[in-house]
Amino acid sequence: MSKTQKIVFMALLAAIELTIWVIEGQIPAPIPVPGVKLGLASVVTLTAMVLLGRREAGCVLLVRILLSALFAGSFSAILFSLAGGVLSWAVMAALIGRFEEKLLWVVSVFGAIGHNAGQLLAAMAVTRSAALVWYGPALLASAIVTGAFTGLGAMYLVRALGRYRTKRSDSK
């Protein structure tokens, strides 16, 4: 893949991720606990990380977060997106080389836990309320379930997009 092709591919991934994020936001949450959502957009981030690399996935994610703030129409949302996104990216970037690709869903679960932890910490910082820590167990449970699903989604997407891979597989 040439440099230009790679940039175009990354831009496409960012656009796809943004679209998924906007559409998912229109679906009412099935569980009445704020912060619980499937997080389908992370499928794209994780796929980008496997196919292109950590840095490229970070770029795709940052572009998606910045643009999603425009679509959400509120600036405070960007703080929560960033807190969750950056922590999730860091956790997945640290773990992705340590798991074989058949265990990609495990990386995704840890990433989802990181995402929810980041958002919870941001919410606690904004409201300055330690009581929010009681959301923790619920957010952990939801992160495990949603992370496993989005991880499986990413595994199928990686398989389908295998020919766009530019990165050597770094799993053992």
Binding site: P137, L139, A141
Partner: peptide, 17 residues
Amino acid sequence: FWAVLFALLAALGAGAY
């Protein structure tokens, strides 16, 4: 191993909540 570990953690979290 991971499936069992995560299932336990999720059950624990949901239960505590």
